[in-house]
């Protein structure tokens, strides 16, 4: 880990996106949009930042990653498979009856998954509990929680934000995947929680900001989060829902949509060729 070779990380991010599309398959609904918007964040965590051991997934010193916006778990499944937690060939079995890859993350079923999430609003609290254990046990692991921007409408998020600041857990890092879309439309037109960064700052968090598709910028933000100021850290990551697949970008219908055979091939083709890379806003 801590590999700052950007060509390596970009290649990994493409593989994660490819894995997302393969996990969705043809004619089955899947959460393409949110998985794609989180793909670079997840890549940076698993292939750059986090201390983890795929052959020893319960090592007590591992960094923890909780995908609070659990519907985007396809990005995590792809990253876990690429790390060797389970075979890449398993990805297309996602959501098949009996599969160890469920529609939302389940820790009992999938190696490397830390918590059951997807009922939105609960992951940050779970991360807080893990961060408190780390402090009680004098372990130096960090806990990373990816939240959705629309998820911030859940009241429990703000209970956890308050509690984390009160307990001064500096080993807790929330990353808000700010893709500006909710399941049913554009956040600014539907239900806008307002200025996310200012709200977290007002609650006592240290706030960092990054382009959520620029891997160097994400790596910088994750490194900056290491500094212990006695505060929890929130990284506001500006992202594009559906990032990397032309017909899905900023398209609410691909929050949870099915791909035709043609769309599936087009998506894989665009990802492999790196369509849209480098035109981050």
């Amino acid at each position: 880990m801590q590999n700052r070779d950007m060509d390596y990380l970009k290649a990994r991010a493409r593989q994660v996106r490819e894995g997302i599309v393969r996990a969705i398959g043809v004619n089955n609904k899947g959460h393409l949009g949110g998985s794609m918007s989180s793909a670079d964040l997840v890549t940076a965590l698993y292939f750059y930042k986090m201390r983890h051991w795929p052959d020893d997934p319960s090592n007590p010193d591992r960094d923890r990653f909780i995908f609070s916006k659990g519907h985007s778990v396809l990005a995590q499944y792809a990253a876990l498979a690429l790390c060797g937690y389970f075979p890449l060939q398993a990805l297309p079995s996602t959501k098949k009856l009996g599969s160890f890859l469920q529609g939302h993350p389940e820790r009992d079923r999938t190696p490397g998954v830390e918590a059951n999430t997807g009922s939105l609003g609960q992951g940050l609290s779970i991360g807080l509990g893990m961060a408190l254990t780390g402090r009680l046990d004098s372990r130096d692991y960090r806990v990373y929680v990816i939240l959705g921007d629309a998820e911030l409408a859940e009241g429990q998020i703000w209970e956890a934000v308050t509690a984390a600041a009160f307990y001064r857990v500096a080993n807790l890092v929330a990353i808000v995947d700010h893709n500006k879309l909710q399941a049913t439309g554009v956040i600014s037109e539907m239900y806008d929680v307002g200025e996310i960064g200012r709200k977290f700052a007002a609650f006592g968090w240290r706030v960092l900001e990054t382009d959520g598709h620029d891997l160097a910028s994400i790596a910088d933000a994750l490194d900056a989060a290491d500094e212990n100021t006695g505060q929890p850290v929130m990284i506001l990551a500006h992202t594009v829902k559906g990032k990397g697949v032309s017909f899905a970008e900023n398209e609410p219908s691909f929050h949870n949509g099915a791909l035709t055979a043609e769309q599936y091939e087009q998506a894989l083709g665009e990802i492999v060729s790196g369509w849209g890379e480098g035109n981050e806003k």
Partner: peptide, 28 residues
């Protein structure tokens, strides 16, 4: 006192925080 967590009047966060403590080895 170090093993007691006052969570304020916020039961939902309290229960899920306990989950994080449990999943990292505590018995909350």
């Amino acid at each position: 006192p170090a093993r007691y967590f006052e969570m304020g009047i916020g039961e939902q966060n309290m229960v899920a925080t306990a989950v994080g403590l449990a999943l990292s080895g505590k018995i909350p």
